[in-house]
Nucleic acid binder design. Structure first.
Length: 623
DNA sequence: TCACGACGGAGCTCCCTCCA
DNA sequence: TGGAGGGAGCTCCGTCGTGA
């Protein structure tokens, strides 16, 4: 353990100039590898300033170490060129933050912007019919027409007979109006000035465009260009409107504290008027026009009766007004790229005040969503991912019947990062039901691998949404004898309680400050009041927890346990209380997959709990 | 230069077969 | 009987060629 802590504090920052075959591999400085003695990690995580991350394996050739698998992807994503250099700064947990500098010595544009924008664009919703397209890569000189998706055209642009042409007014949300023609041939296209539009808006290859069909006769469309989506991603307005299910609204202001954004000032009034309580769940749905519709779910997972709540609280006359018809509130029509923000709050300390002064917003609108930790108790089913299920995945018939899926055609999947993915429900004539269109994107974005298990959980009180928990299976490397053998370990518990890192990740929205008053629940598996070192004995199949810790922090059993390693891998185990407090049913897999050996040390941090499971972050310090 | 058609590949739907 | 595997064929879209 000492060596690990030593590493964390003494790993040197370094930079590498891109020379030689840098696109395939990158040698690591000897001074760096010496710091990791006796064992250089097999995997590093590279994290860009925007939070994008790459897993890169470390390969040893003779006495030298290289970044190998995964580095190529990083190099391609960053479009690294000869002579550019990369600065690596160690962040702990085998992760480096990286900054890339071009040959002009200036920091290089952050990569994967398009990927991020695409994700945002994919989740844009609107009251108007809409479609998304990408400017093709390569030579744009031939890009004189825009093909409109056939299904969209069929559904929303009637009179699609061959040879038809109609005028189209295309309004760009960042300014400018363009007159084009809609032509129906083999393809449905925008012609008659599309190239002028491309040039006039300085469109580049792989730019993402979102189109809203505002009117059909004559055809009027809005276009949300890449820059606009990007701006919305980073430029959050100073004021939002929150509306409740009772059609009342509150104007709340956005405040920046450090690098986080908060709803402030009028937020306490909203909280008070809606009788927010510890344990409530808030879902923010962006309606456009700077307005969020807020759904409030109580700790019983049902939508809260706000009218009832209002009776018990003093309403604010100043900020609470009846909503006017016609949506005429003088709010500038600034945002057209709506997005759904889901704010899942976490049960923390009972004394946390929900009427705290602020509530956190997604960081720079990057929609930072905490892992969906709603306390749902709805129906669920499991499915194991296989390559053959890349395009469809079956839903058990009893689930289909119970949830009435046969009459639905769309659902939302909520991934572990809190992102939502629209998927199509397809029912075959033979009575089988699958998730189809949208599922491939979900798989790709969540990097599902063969044998990864998806736990689909229907959320009570939220229609058309399924939360998906992913339990990853690692392909075990060739089995080393000592790794596969039963091991006995002792787990030394550090004397101090270290606060767990906030688990914010790209695409996550942490709202714990509102409900939990900024406190971190994460504890090392030790009793805070007891400075004595504790040990935890384990067998291959069972891990016995220190009873003092378990009695204080893990009182409820039986309950599922999610073990999460520093790389984000998860394992499922079962927590039981008998003669001891112990983990089994899955602990063995964890031991096996992580090649735990005798005298290896595991630090357990209780980072979360809810009605169904505890979540333990496990840091492994190898002997 | 622009409008439109052709082509090929990727993705999706549907169905058959196997197996528990 | 229902779930899973896998393949055939269709659809859609990106790309490029051609002619006005």
């Amino acid at each position: 353990m000492d060596s690990m802590l030593h590493h964390t504090s003494n790993i040197p920052n370094f930079f590498k100039v891109m020379v030689g075959d840098f696109q395939k591999k990158l040698s690591l400085p000897k001074a760096l590898t010496l710091c990791f003695k006796p064992k250089v990690p097999k995997m590093f995580t590279l994290i860009s300033p925007t939070g994008s991350s790459w897993m890169v394996s470390v390969k040893r050739v003779d006495k030298d170490f290289f970044l190998a698998n995964g580095w190529k992807t990083f190099a391609e994503d960053y479009a690294l060129e000869l002579g550019e250099f990369v600065v690596f700064r160690y962040k702990g947990d085998n992760a480096f933050s990286v900054k890339v500098f071009g040959k002009n010595a200036c920091e290089k544009e952050v990569p994967s912007t398009n990927k991020n924008i695409e994700e945002v664009a994919n989740h844009v919703t609107s009251k108007y019919p809409m479609f998304t397209t990408t400017v093709p890569k390569g030579d744009l000189t031939w890009y004189t027409t825009l093909i409109i998706p056939k299904l969209f055209a069929k559904k929303y642009l009637k009179n699609n007979h061959l040879g038809l042409t109609r005028d189209v007014t295309l309004r760009v949300t960042t300014g400018g109006t363009w007159n084009l023609r809609y032509s129906v041939g083999v393809h449905r296209r925008l012609i008659g000035g599309w190239k002028t539009f491309v040039v006039g808006n300085n469109l580049k290859a792989r730019d993402i465009l979102v189109f809203e069909l505002v009117d059909r006769n004559p055809i009027q469309m809005n276009c949300l260009p890449t820059d606009y989506i990007k701006n919305f991603n980073g430029d959050v307005p100073k004021q939002f409107i929150l509306t409740s299910s009772t059609r009342r609204f509150w104007e709340v202001f956005v405040k920046k504290i450090d690098n986080n954004l908060f709803l402030s000032e009028q937020w306490p009034i909203f909280a008070k008027d809606n009788a927010l309580e510890f344990g409530d769940l808030l879902v923010f749905i962006y309606n456009g026009n700077l307005e969020f519709r807020v759904k409030i779910f109580g700790s019983n997972a049902c939508e809260k009766d706000v009218e009832l709540a209002l009776k018990n609280n003093v309403e604010s006359d100043f900020y609470l007004r009846e909503e006017k018809e016609g949506n005429d509130r003088g709010i500038p029509d600034k945002l057209h790229s709506p997005d759904i923000l889901k704010c899942y709050k976490r049960r923390r300390t009972a004394e946390a005040a929900v009427t705290d002064k602020v509530t956190s917003l997604p960081n720079s609108m990057s929609i930072k969503t905490e892992r969906s930790e709603v306390m749902e108790v709805g129906l669920s089913f499991n499915a194991t991912f296989q390559p053959s299920r890349k395009y469809k995945i079956g839903i058990p018939n009893e689930i289909v019947k119970e949830k009435g899926l046969s009459v639905k055609d769309k659902m939302l999947l909520l991934d572990p990062c809190g992102r939502s993915w629209p998927v199509t429900i397809y029912c075959w004539s033979k009575g089988r039901t699958f998730l189809t269109a949208g599922w491939p994107a979900f798989c790709k974005a969540n990097r599902l691998n063969t044998n990864d298990t998806c736990h689909f959980q229907f959320i009570d009180g939220v229609d058309n949404a399924i939360r998906v928990e992913i339990f990853r299976t690692r392909t075990p490397p060739p089995i080393a004898k000592q790794a596969s053998a039963g091991v006995k370990m002792s787990t030394a518990i550090p004397r101090e309680v270290i606060e767990a890192p906030t688990r914010k990740r790209p695409g996550e929205f942490v709202d714990d400050r509102v409900i939990h008053n900024g406190k971190q629940e994460s504890l090392l598996m030790t009793d805070c009041s007891n400075n004595d070192e504790q040990t935890m004995s384990t067998a291959p199949n069972v891990a016995v927890l220190p009873s003092a810790f378990a009695k204080k922090h893990m009182k409820h059993a039986p309950r599922g346990v999610i073990l999460r390693d520093s790389n984000g891998g998860t394992w499922h185990a079962q927590y039981k209380i008998g003669s001891h407090h112990k983990l089994n049913m899955g602990w063995k897999t964890f031991v096996f997959d992580n090649h735990l050996k005798e005298c290896d040390v595991c630090i357990f941090e209780l980072v979360d709990e809810n009605l169904t499971h505890y979540e333990l972050k496990v840091t492994i310090i190898r002997h």
